[in-house]
Amino acid sequence: MGIKSFQGKRSTEKKEFVAPILVSDYMSTKLVSFRPEQSILEVMEAFAKHRISGGPVLDSNGFLVGMVSEADCMKQISESRYFNLPILDKRVERFMSREIDSIPHDMTIFDAARIFDTHHRRRLPVMKNDILVGQISRKDIVIAALKLSGHNWK
């Protein structure tokens, strides 16, 4: 398993810009998370209930061990149909992505936008001192850009 953390410009330098531009200002902090031992069916139900398309997978100590998405569910649905097997028996740990790209909480939204553009992710976990503190999506970056559109971006 590997969590690759992208680094960007830190927020330690003084800025003339008054509007917030950090990932932590726009990330979601109330996340729907999953456990490796959960069934993929439970994940699909949570996706539908909360109208989400993915989320972090946390171990029993609350550490990030993977990400699960609708694409992972599609693999399960496809396999179940092909092998004529029930969906209920499959655990998240079998289908989740273990190679995780993450970003630090104090990265600028501009650096995050570059990562989304070059790595084709829909969402990225946001970390602070190796602890999951949130998640940011492409949509969050677009919303941040709209809020900042009347300002000079530095």
Rank of each mutant, 00 (worst) to 15 (best):
K4Y: 08
K4D: 09
S5E: 14
K9Y: 03
R10Y: 04
S11K: 13
T12G: 10
T12Q: 13
K14S: 07
E16F: 00
E16Q: 09
E16T: 09
E16L: 10
E16S: 08
F17L: 10
A19P: 01
I21N: 02
L22S: 05
V23N: 04
D25Y: 02
M27E: 14
K30V: 09
K30Y: 05
L31C: 15
L31T: 08
L31I: 11
V32S: 05
R35A: 12
P36F: 15
P36L: 11
E37Q: 14
Q38H: 14
S39C: 10
E42Y: 00
E42I: 02
E45V: 12
A46S: 15
K49R: 15
K49D: 11
H50W: 03
R51N: 14
R51C: 12
R51F: 08
R51M: 14
S53V: 07
S53D: 09
G54S: 09
G55W: 06
G55S: 09
V57N: 06
L58F: 11
N61V: 04
F63W: 08
L64W: 07
V65Q: 05
G66F: 06
G66Q: 00
S69P: 08
S69H: 09
A71G: 13
A71R: 15
C73K: 02
M74H: 08
I77Q: 04
S78A: 12
R81A: 11
N84M: 13
L85V: 11
I87V: 14
L88E: 15
D89V: 11
K90S: 09
R94N: 15
S97K: 08
R98S: 13
E99H: 13
D101Q: 07
S102P: 00
H105F: 13
D106H: 04
D106W: 02
I109L: 10
D111S: 01
D111I: 01
D111K: 01
D111P: 01
A113D: 04
A113S: 08
R114M: 04
I115Q: 00
F116Q: 07
H119W: 03
H119K: 14
H120T: 00
R121C: 08
R123M: 13
L124W: 01
K128N: 09
K128P: 00
N129K: 11
N129R: 12
D130F: 05
V133W: 03
G134H: 11
Q135A: 06
R138Y: 08
D140H: 02
D140T: 02
D140S: 03
D140V: 01
D140P: 01
I141G: 10
I141M: 12
A144Q: 01
A145V: 09
L146K: 10
L148E: 06
S149K: 11
G150M: 00
H151M: 06
W153S: 03
K154S: 03
